[in-house]
Design a protein around this nucleic acid. Structure first.
Length: 705
DNA sequence: TTAGGGTTAG
């Protein structure tokens, strides 16, 4: 009767029936009863109760009963208890071994799964197709390609390649090791393919950054009569995002909605949120997120990352705050990795330190990604010593934390230290990657280390066989340009093997601004506006170049270009942390509760610094307005609002740390020098380009506008 | 009369 219930899916009735049987004492359950009841029980405590009865009755030795117990424990995630049952068994068949292996695999215990597999081989038990398809998925997480290839050879020798599960598992395994040709050849040799085979092949190319090939296989799959399922769409969403194909993102989303896939499934919802945010359409991403019936921690992480990667750090922090208010959601490693870069971005040191404390508490400091994000927070918040201390604590066998600490010293102008860290990295046998060299080259250019920078560029190609990308080229242009070798920088661009992008021309334009080269600046901007017509920051740079040499007709020309092209300046904002609270100020904004006091303080400050020699430089105002209004505009630049707020909110002589999303304007740079003098405060401003340490009327960056 | 074991994801 019990098995009748279970066979018909009425598990609860099966268990009830069993309890009644025992209670009434009418029939004594035997070893035929227990496998069925164990299959039916819906919770761990029922399972444990049954285990103790079985134990008392001595049925644990029965192969069927013991296997069912083992399965029950794995099903509830208590695979360790399953292992204990397994160890006590006197007789095991192949199915028992397979159940133990897959029990560990499905509970994320790859090492234990492999241990059981090895024991099985030692005992001379021959594996079958089920063993192979269980063991293959753990090879990649364990980074054990040898094991995967051993299984593959076994498959060929024993004719198991005709099993569709085995071939699918092989495709997935090789794809995870980036061995696409092998994955593809296994797919090609399959006699019978199912939807999983197609999904696996598509995902293989998608995960190895070949969205075009992946899309081709999707089309072929449809041609072969297969209908896409949830997993196909998860890959498709990523394919569209990788190709930057905003048009098709909506079609993919529409299909998902039409097939009614999005409501019940968190996975596909998360994939769509990720797709829109990677395409820069964060509003859509948020809307999809809001419309999801169920959300898990990954849904939140995806949205936070989306905001952070689209440069909207404050919004990312807002989402994180809301997430922390949800009792159901426990932050994961991924949450920390998504929120910490937002803190780095705006210089939210206290918030970062809070997360640091939390990281120590939950034992995640040994995670290289979390550790590296924290190093980055400390470095970008001006705490290089703390960053260094942390660097010594995190595992550093991979290039990731090294890149962060090298770049950290670079943005503070400590290029020599970056170079010596790179030397240590080489000594410790850690292989640098392309990011290491971007960090190194930019460190060299900020510190004016021209020869060393050029040597690094050579080393990267000759010793490490890394082909330079646009970022590396941009660094070299910056390196040469900043040092005044403008013609060399221009020649370098002309000889580049790839088409220069905006960052390369932008580096040249920036160098022309520093060295006052109007002709080359105009030329660079012509190229620049061809590849990026919308970035107003570059127009401002060009205007500065003209203004500096008094070529007002040039300033007017740039101003009308901006107006004719209907360009709007990216709103400038600055942030500051005072008394553990984080404040953001937008240029010209008067909505802050202390706005009146801030503007009053600024008026006093401006008067004082004018007395000691400050003269406003209106060339930084692109708007076509009267002089007194220009002064008004300069005075309400976001960095000044933040500085004034810092001055009125902290005791005298307290250092002030500001973050600005754009470059600090030349007039603010000059004014801040004077402010640091009269207030006797150290003022640190990190802008989108570098750190500026102001103290006693001077700035460490040495730039002159 | 009883059971257990496999492949794809954000």
């Amino acid at each position: 009767m019990i098995s009748g219930f279970v066979r018909n899916g009425c598990f609860e009735k099966g268990v009830d029936c069993y309890y009644e049987l025992v209670k009434e004492g009418r029939v004594r359950p035997d070893f035929f009863t227990y496998p069925v009841v164990l299959k039916a029980c819906g919770c761990l405590s029922d399972g444990r109760k049954i285990h103790s009865w079985v134990f008392k009755l001595g049925y644990c030795l029965d192969l069927f009963v013991a296997s069912s117990l083992l399965h029950m424990y794995s099903r509830f995630g208590f695979v360790g208890d399953g292992r204990r049952v397994f160890d006590e068994m006197s007789v095991r068949d192949l199915g028992t071994w397979n159940a133990m292996i897959s029990g560990f695999c499905q509970n994320g215990k790859a090492v234990e799964a492999l241990d059981v597999f090895r024991e099985m081989c030692m005992e001379g038990v021959k594996m079958d197709s089920m063993t192979v398809s269980s063991i293959l998925p753990v090879c990649a997480p364990l980074n054990n390609l040898d094991m995967g290839m051993f299984a593959h050879v076994y498959v060929i020798k024993n004719g198991l390649e005709f099993d569709v599960y085995v071939s699918n598992a092989l495709i997935n395994m090789y794809a995870k090791f980036g061995m696409l040709a092998l994955a593809r050849s296994i797919f090609d040799q399959m006699m019978v393919r199912d939807l999983v085979s197609w999904n696996s092949l598509i995902a293989a190319y998608e995960q190895n950054s070949d969205p075009i090939a992946a899309l081709g296989y999707f089309v072929e799959m449809k041609r072969n009569g297969f209908q896409p399922d949830i997993l196909t769409f998860v890959s498709l969403a990523s394919i569209v995002a990788q190709s930057g194909d905003a048009e098709n993102s909506k079609s993919v989303h529409c299909c998902i909605i039409k097939l009614d896939l999005i409501r019940g499934d968190i996975f596909i919802g998360n994939a769509v949120v990720d797709m829109y945010s990677k395409l820069g359409n964060i509003d859509y991403a948020h809307r999809v997120f809001d419309g999801m019936d169920n959300k898990d921690v990954i849904s939140w992480n995806t949205l936070i990352t989306g905001y952070a990667q689209n440069g909207l750090a404050s919004e990312a922090m807002e989402v994180y705050k809301t997430m922390r208010e949800c009792e159901m959601i426990v932050p994961s490693q991924g949450t920390l990795v998504s929120i910490l870069p937002a803190y780095s971005h705006v210089g939210a040191l206290r918030q970062g330190m809070k997360v640091h404390g939390h990281t120590v508490k939950i034992g995640l400091l040994s995670d290289i990604y979390v550790g590296t994000c924290l190093i980055d927070v400390y470095a970008k918040c001006g705490r290089l010593n703390d960053a260094m201390m942390l660097f010594k604590q995190v595992p550093r066998k991979s290039s990731v934390p090294w890149n962060a600490i090298i770049s950290g010293h670079g943005i503070h102008g400590q290029g020599e230290k970056s170079l010596s860290l790179f030397g240590e990295m080489e000594e410790e046998g850690v292989k640098p990657d392309h990011v290491t060299f971007v960090s190194l080259l930019s460190a060299c250019s900020h510190a004016g280390l021209i020869d060393q920078g050029q040597q690094c560029f050579k080393l990267m190609q000759e010793k490490y066989c890394i082909q330079p990308g646009l970022k590396h080229f941009g660094c070299i242009v910056d390196l040469l340009g900043r040092a005044g070798h403008l013609d060399m920088a221009y020649d370098f661009i002309k000889n580049m093997p790839v088409r220069p992008d905006a960052s390369v021309w932008g580096a040249l334009l920036g160098a022309c601004r520093i060295h006052g080269n109007v002709e080359l600046g105009a030329l660079a901007s012509e190229h620049l506006f061809e590849v990026d017509v919308e970035n107003v920051g570059y127009y401002v740079l060009l205007s500065n170049i003209y203004a500096n040499v008094g070529r007002w007709e040039g300033v007017d020309k740039v101003r009308s270009l901006v107006n004719n092209r209907g360009l709007k300046k990216t709103p400038g904002w600055s942030s500051i942390e005072v008394n553990n609270r984080f404040g953001v100020f937008y240029t010209g904004n008067r909505s802050h509760p202390l706005s009146e006091e801030i503007y009053k303080e600024l008026k006093v400050l401006m008067a004082k610094i004018k007395n000691i020699g400050y003269v406003p430089d209106y060339s930084f105002v692109l708007q076509d307005v009267e002089e007194d209004e220009k002064e008004q505009i300069l005075t309400s630049h976001s960095e000044r609002l933040a500085i004034a707020f810092g001055i009125i909110s902290t005791p005298p002589k307290t250092p002030i740390h500001i973050f600005k999303n754009l470059r600090v304007c030349g007039d603010c740079h000059n004014a801040t020098k004077y402010i640091s003098k009269i207030t006797e405060r150290e003022i640190v401003v990190r802008d989108s380009n570098r750190f500026h340490h102001f103290s006693n009327g001077d700035c460490s960056c040495g730039d002159h506008w």
